[in-house]
Simulated assay, not measured.
Amino acid sequence: MEQFIDGRTEDGDREMAPKEKFSKLLDELKSCSVSEQKEKIEEMNRLFDEMNTEELEHVYTIDMFNKIDQMIKEEKLTMGNAILLLKHIGYYKILKCICRENFFCSSLSRRFREMIIKEDKKKEGNNEKLFINLIECYLLLDNRLSSDLYPICVPCLLKVALKKEEDEKTQKEVEMVLLALTNVGYIPEEMYLNEIKEIIQHHQEHHNLTHLSYHCAWEYLINRLPKNSLEEEMVNELHFAREATKELEELSESVDWKKKEEEMRKTERKTMDIILRWIDSICYYLYSCHLWNEEYAGLISRIVDVLRASRDNHSEICKEYILLFYAITKNRAVKLDVLLKSGAIDAALEEILRPTLNRRMTLEFIFFFSFDFNAVERKGG
């Protein structure tokens, strides 16, 4: 086995970073056969599994998308192989919360938009698999869905998302389309809510979704919470707090918190990404939702457990929890006795006393103690 010293192999060659390997393989695609292309794309997709957020941002460029578009135009890259690569790029763009809009500015975005409209006009005669794949790629890579495209794209993906089968292939298909749907910016707020609620309720009975899919279904609702009368349904019918508690518990139990992120297996790193997505959603939910039931208590206790488990080796999660404590502070529905019994107040105090906590984070946790407890007591807390 080759030994690496200071980034170089035994014979003195520098070890190539994943983002450099990716660029090299991308340039090689145009001179490969279809089968060789597929092999190289599978290798490129594996590189995404190794990249951190900073490396992924260096890869996600207008130049990369324009290169792919040019290869498609010159028939040096098949559409099937392009989709295989682009889906993986889009998957990690959303999972790692990369906010760059480089795809929107590329010629590839225009090509996909034109192809989606063309396939839609064919109606019954269209290539359904290609149609779904084009829409998935487009939505995974760009959240600027224009008003003429959402009635084309969203119903198409919801048809896939509503599949009830529990086999692994279907679960992966549903995961990808739900992830794409969460990346859609503007959708008329009243549209497609019943379908998403059906997906959530079916999973609660039959457990047919992956952890990521289930979170995506909830995120779709939460993002539309302020402009809809969804609050009562989410609290008392769909039981968001109970379900979020259960998901955090199951996800956190599959992570070895004693390991640093770079020491974790790929599956553990993906689990960490999903936990971060849940934390972000819970924050938004707590900002927007002011109804109370007893399930809040379990959720806040679980939040405290994950904070304490992750604090030594996972500063990113700790930073996210500052926002969560801020949301709890703002949410007058959270009761004082729950904050005390759940350990939330003790946990915030422990963070303030940690010598490694930076000044900004300390101030954020101190703000938690500016919580107007008297206001909560006046409301019956």
Rank of each mutant, 00 (worst) to 15 (best):
H202E: 11
D120H: 14
Q37I: 02
D63K: 15
E189L: 11
N374V: 15
S310K: 01
H215T: 02
M1G: 11
P151M: 09
E119D: 08
D280I: 02
I89G: 02
V304T: 01
E250F: 15
R360V: 10
D148W: 08
E128G: 13
M361T: 11
L29Q: 02
S107Q: 14
Q204F: 09
K93E: 09
T210N: 05
S35F: 04
T61S: 08
S35W: 04
N236D: 14
D120F: 12
S106I: 09
I199N: 00
E101S: 04
D49R: 14
F367D: 04
D280N: 09
S370V: 12
R100F: 08
M1H: 08
S213M: 03
L84V: 10
A344Y: 07
F368M: 06
L108R: 06
C32P: 07
E351M: 08
T78C: 04
K319S: 13
N236Y: 13
L225P: 05
L139S: 06
N313V: 06
Y284S: 11
Y91W: 10
L340I: 14
Y138H: 07
Q37F: 02
S109M: 11
E42L: 12
R100I: 13
L141H: 05
H206C: 11
K76V: 06
S229A: 13
C99S: 12
P18N: 09
A309F: 01
N313T: 10
F325V: 01
L178T: 01
E243C: 01
T245N: 00
E55V: 08
E50C: 14
V306S: 00
V174F: 03
C289F: 03
E237I: 14
M264Q: 03
K38Q: 12
R269H: 14
D280R: 06
E268V: 03
P226N: 09
W292Y: 15
Q201K: 15
C99H: 13
F103I: 10
K118F: 11
K163D: 12
I196N: 00
T53F: 04
P355S: 03
Q201H: 12
G80F: 12
K19E: 10
M79S: 09
D280Y: 05
T61K: 07
E231P: 07
L353A: 15
